[in-house]
């Protein structure tokens, strides 16, 4: 506070605040609020732990180094994309273009390396950048052309998918073995995709929880007009969010292509809804203003755990989809009940 602004030390005739209202115990209740928030996240995390324990008990193949590593590698792409989708969803938006951006980025990277003989690093970089460019187009369509996010990204979903197919004439591009650094490489004992995922998650958490940009993202999602009247550059923030999502989808696409040594225009088909599901299972609200990176990560882990566990237990992939559907319903129903209980307080 600057000089001479607020302090209401001068006693204006104010009615007495009843002690119960006025009393504050910042420390005690702060801790309580914190505990409650932990518990909100914890419900899901606990479920994931129980599921992990159950799998450990049922099959000896679950808790092995190889399987756990494979599980996290499998999860990495969804998780990377989910961080971007989370930001979009917190602004009360949605990005449906993710699937084809994944395909385009991987295909473009492989294409550049194979046919244009760009270096692997440059090719991958340009693949990711292409994702960012699509994000920029999404952002402009939403903030300047005023299309609803659903429509804008539905349009780019289609256009980008077409572009990737045009680029390679519909054929997957086989990449040389040296292309596998991002997908199959190792950093010490840890697979590179896991490292990428962790870096993205930590960066995402930092941006959302610790920066003015992150605060603006939450504020816009909670109340767009209030954020605007408070001087937040809403258009710039929203556009940036879609660019970030584009970049992360591009990164995810490059990781996929690198792992399978193929730039496949259709490789991203499933990632779209999986990432949205992870975010929503993790407690984000499609109405905006709510959601955490931690929640989205736990959501992604849960989905991967279901798929991995089902594989180990020889449950068919058809049934896996059914199970996943049921889990989404249960997770959201639980979350809704929690919210209602909270609102009734």
């Amino acid at each position: 506070m600057g000089p001479g602004v607020v302090p209401l030390t001068e006693p204006t005739p104010l009615p007495e605040v009843s002690p119960s209202q006025g009393a504050r115990e910042p420390d005690g209740s702060h801790r309580r609020a914190w505990t409650r928030r932990l518990l909100q996240q914890f419900g899901l995390a606990l479920f994931v732990l129980v599921l992990g324990a159950a799998l450990t008990a049922y099959t000896p193949y679950f808790l092995t180094g190889t399987n756990i590593s494979a599980l996290f590698v499998q999860m990495s792409v969804i998780a990377i994309i989910a961080v971007g989708q989370l930001m979009v969803i917190i602004t009360a938006g949605i990005d449906l273009s993710v699937s084809t951006v994944v395909g385009l980025a991987g295909t473009l990277a492989a294409y550049l390396v194979v046919y244009d003989h760009t270096g692997t690093a440059l090719g991958m970089f340009l693949g990711v950048a292409a994702g960012g460019a699509v994000g920029l187009i999404n952002g402009i369509l939403i903030t300047r052309v005023h299309l609803p996010p659903f429509i804008a990204t539905l349009a780019t979903l289609s256009a980008v998918g077409g572009a990737a197919l045009i680029l390679t004439n519909g054929q997957p591009v086989g990449a040389p073995a040296s292309f596998d650094v991002l997908g199959a490489g190792k950093l010490g004992p840890i697979a590179v995709p896991i490292v990428v995922m962790l870096v993205v998650a930590v960066a995402g958490w930092f941006v959302l929880a610790r920066t003015t940009f992150g605060r603006s993202v939450y504020a816009i999602g909670s109340n767009y007009e209030a954020a605007r009247l408070s001087g937040i550059a809403v258009n710039r923030v929203i556009t940036s969010v879609y660019v970030i999502q584009g970049l992360l989808a591009g990164l995810g696409g490059v990781v996929v292509a690198s792992r399978i040594l193929t730039g496949d225009p259709t490789s991203g088909t499933n990632y779209n809804l999986d990432a949205i599901a992870a975010v929503v299972i993790g407690g984000a609200s499609l109405f905006g203003g709510e959601g955490t990176v931690f929640g989205a990560m736990v959501g992604a882990l849960l989905m991967e755990l279901i798929s991995n566990g089902s594989d180990l237990l020889n449950i068919s992939s058809f049934w896996q989809e059914v199970i996943l559907g049921v889990v989404i319903v249960i997770a959201i129903a639980y979350d809704q009940a929690r919210r209602r209980a909270f609102a009734r307080r």
């Binding site: 003015t212 605060r215 603006s216 939450y218 504020a219 999602g221 909670s222 109340n223 007009e225 209030a226 954020a227 009247l229 408070s230 001087g231 937040i232 203003g289 709510e290």
Partner: peptide, 18 residues
């Protein structure tokens, strides 16, 4: 157009002066 009701009191207070 005033309150970011999902956010904390603190975040609401500092919203116009980030």
């Amino acid at each position: 157009s005033g309150l970011a009701s999902l956010l904390s009191v603190r975040a609401n207070l500092t919203l116009a002066s980030l």
